[in-house]
Amino acid sequence: MAKPTALVIDDEDQIRRVVRRALADDFSHVSEAGTGVAGIDAAASEKPDVIVLDLGLPDANGIDVCRELRKWSAAAILVLSARHDDNEKIALLDAGADDYVTKPFNTLELKARVRALLRRVSTSGSSTGTIIKCGELSMDLSARTLTLGGELLHLTPTEWELVRVLMINSGKTMTHRQLFSAVWPAKSAGDAQQYLRVHVANVRRKIEANPIEPQYIFTEPGVGYRFASCE
């Protein structure tokens, strides 16, 4: 696969430059836009694989930009957020962003998150069959089985759904709400949902070597969960 391209939408020169240099290794071309409007135009004409979007744009609300891009763009969207509370991050993920990093971010973390999204973009097009592998975990979607190091794991139907949704979205931060609606059919919302975090804890105890230092399911505090990015 040819090296992918990226677009950075940010009103701050310095941040654009920093992000562009951080992405230089993994992308053949990184273009820049200084406003939301210019960013949407550039996304339409250049069709980048990854878009890094700053929330603090002077001319547009980040959520609107995200929603607009999502209407016609398949690019992975990584949001840069400086906000103090998590509600905006959740709203952005619900509006179609794939992941976020909080300012002041660590360059290594930014690179890792972008790479994870890139892997998603490059694998989602090609059909990889019904087996999803990640580390020691192997999920067979048609047989509805999950094995760890070759051994079959016993999951409740809810736990199976939870792991399935997380694994097929690996590398992407899933908000609590996205997980609710994916795991529980719309009508049965309510009681069951409040125990989402308990189900995650139970799943971790089955798949993680040490549930306190998870290797597969990461917690994004206040936002949701993210499954490790699988090679």
Partner: peptide
């Protein structure tokens, strides 16, 4: 305030890292 303070901090951190 949080945006205005964090944006320069982001630049400082990233440049230091480079």
């Amino acid at each position: 305030l949080s945006h205005d303070l964090r944006t320069p901090l982001t630049t400082i951190k990233a440049l230091a890292h480079e």
